[in-house]
Nucleic acid binder design. Sequence first.
DNA 1: GGTGAAAAAGGGCATTC
DNA 2: GAATGCCCTTTTTCACC
Lengths: 167, 167
Amino acid sequence: MSDSVVLDPVDLEILRLLQNDARMTYRELAAAVGVAASTCLDRVARLRRGGVILGQVLRVDPARLGRPLEALLSVQVRPHRAELIGPFVERVRALPQARALFHLTGPDDYLVHVAVAGPAALQRLVLEEFTARREVARVETRLIFGRWECGPVLPPAPAESGPGPVG
Amino acid sequence: MSDSVVLDPVDLEILRLLQNDARMTYRELAAAVGVAASTCLDRVARLRRGGVILGQVLRVDPARLGRPLEALLSVQVRPHRAELIGPFVERVRALPQARALFHLTGPDDYLVHVAVAGPAALQRLVLEEFTARREVARVETRLIFGRWECGPVLPPAPAESGPGPVG
DNA sequence: GGTGAAAAAGGGCATTC
DNA sequence: GAATGCCCTTTTTCACC
């Protein structure tokens, strides 16, 4: 977890490719990037050690798991104090319906991304797990029509005018 | 891509484990789940074919890539017509700062999750890529204090009273 | 269980500061 | 001349049948 990880164009290209498909072999990676496979291995190991690569996870389709309806819940927690929001966060994270949780600035303290079986399940989730709790002052529910996870965070082209300081 | 994928507790446990760490070997997976490694292989292949498993991606730390500040932008696109929102969505997805994009019900049409280098970069992004566009009627920016991606979407325990219909 | 392939591990060579 | 990065080779492990 050294905090002085400097990234060159090769690192960026490796990250970009692996973000799209982490199952690529080092051979394929090497061919695409233009270095030796062992070099790719070294680079990836270094990025792992440096904390740039946090892990490798499975992308699963919630609809195929019986949760085709997704929504965002804006939640006000009042009073907004540490001893209340700690348990709140833990409780939300433990919900199987929860996909993501954001602590935000602004009038709504939290935004919760959930996936449920349908409208009835959504209603039940909101009523039983959120508004029923004393520290939850307000919940606003918005349905998700469509969602795009644009993983990159990286410039699509490896380096043209330079992506700026990334060390 | 058959749409009749029925999941049993073994499938759910496999998915749950691989969602936390997709680098697990089939041996480790088999030991954890309590079945043969070849069975795990078959199950995972079936889940891939069935579209339950969409892929395997790298989790990267945006802060280590020079984008330590994250925010959510609520965007109103007016008029909210298909010929305007198509290009808008494509444009947003092409931004290297964009991490996710949601199309929502409610007064705000889109929610964009972005990661930037700092407040100045955020201001520049909002002004140049959003409010400068004619179809963007309003942008509301909220900073992200903290974020938890609770990947699961699955019950934490494999099966106690039954996770309900998930086929 | 067996086979072929991929991932680690180790060492040599070049380049740089 | 010490260090770093790249590449090749070997060993080990894993995926797949």
